[in-house]
Computed example of a mutant assay.
Amino acid sequence: MIKRINLEHILFLDIETVPQHQYFEELDDSSKMLWEVKSQYQRRDDFTAEEFYDRAGIWAEFGKIVCISVGYFVLKGDIRNFRVTSFHGDEKTILKEFKALLEIHFNKPHHLICAHNGKEFDFPYIARRMIINGIDIPFKLDLFGKKPWEVPHLDTLELWKFGDFKTFTSLKLLAHVLGIPSPKDDIDGNQVRSVFYEENDIDRIITYCEKDAVTMAQIFLRLRNEEILSESEILSV
């Protein structure tokens, strides 16, 4: 079934998120209280709410998106290219530009969006942040009233599960077992906050995010038992 999907119909994407504020003290009193309640189960008694705040980026209610990287295949005869681009800047601009991409270039019923653990993280996170920023959700992210087979979402984690509900396999591990060069050769997800707030190095985050988008495409090719992309086939646009 996966081999029947036209590669040019898929938009691969990855997002990078950080806490909305650099420091816990910058939250208003209501937000501090709500964060303490929201994070209580995760941190238990090991950390105070303030000590745990550096992980706030994983929740759309307390985090924000600082980069969305996308990649797509362009096939012309025997020539295969994978083009990667990123949206960054203030969050509202990122979300508006990403929405425009979906509505202009990936707006057909056969178009799909793909992320690793996207159904649990990337897709709902983007939709929630759009609502918070007063942006209408594009059709590709609006699941209301859709039947399961009408949802235009692919998830490389779900594809790797093969129906197993217990398994979580990270992008790094999946790339490793499939013989794909590791995307995590610089920073890792838990370092994005410090790179953004302390180093102010958005370019480093963009590079990291784009590598993940490329790795997802490589994994998708391996799941189809096809040759992975060479460096010469990957273009940053």
Rank of each mutant, 00 (worst) to 15 (best):
E158T: 01
D46K: 13
G63D: 14
E36F: 06
E8V: 06
K184Y: 13
D46T: 09
F165L: 15
G134E: 05
Q191T: 01
K38A: 11
T215K: 00
L13W: 00
E210W: 12
F220C: 00
T156Q: 00
F139M: 12
D28Q: 04
G118S: 04
D90G: 11
E226S: 05
E26F: 00
Q22R: 12
E210A: 14
D185F: 06
L75M: 03
Y41T: 07
G77K: 02
V151Y: 10
E103I: 02
G189Y: 12
S39T: 03
E51R: 13
E8R: 09
E61Q: 14
H105W: 10
I113V: 12
F196S: 03
H9K: 11
S86R: 07
N200L: 14
K147I: 02
S182H: 12
F73H: 05
I234S: 07
I205Y: 15
E227F: 01
G189L: 09
Y197M: 06
F196N: 02
S170Y: 07
V151F: 08
K92E: 12
I206K: 08
P19C: 04
D78K: 08
M1L: 04
E227P: 02
G77A: 03
G89E: 12
V214H: 05
R4C: 05
D29V: 02
G134D: 05
K92S: 13
E120W: 08
I94L: 09
F82E: 00
K92F: 07
I219A: 01
T207I: 05
S86A: 11
G179I: 01
H88S: 02
T17P: 15
P109I: 00
D122V: 01
V18P: 15
F165D: 15
P109N: 01
I202G: 09
T17S: 10
K146S: 01
A49L: 09
K166L: 08
I58P: 03
D142Q: 06
E26A: 02
C114K: 00
V18L: 10
F168L: 07
K108Y: 02
S31T: 07
F196R: 01
Q42N: 04
I65S: 13
L112C: 02
K92L: 07
P183G: 04
K146V: 00
I228E: 08
R44Y: 10
P183C: 04
W149F: 14
E25L: 01
Q42W: 08
K211M: 10
H116M: 05
P148S: 09
I234T: 08
Q42P: 03
M216I: 11
L101R: 15
F24W: 15
D90Y: 15
D201A: 05
I58V: 01
Y41H: 13
E8G: 12
E227M: 05
H21E: 13
L11G: 10
Y41I: 06
D212W: 10
K108S: 04
E50D: 14
W160G: 02
F106W: 15
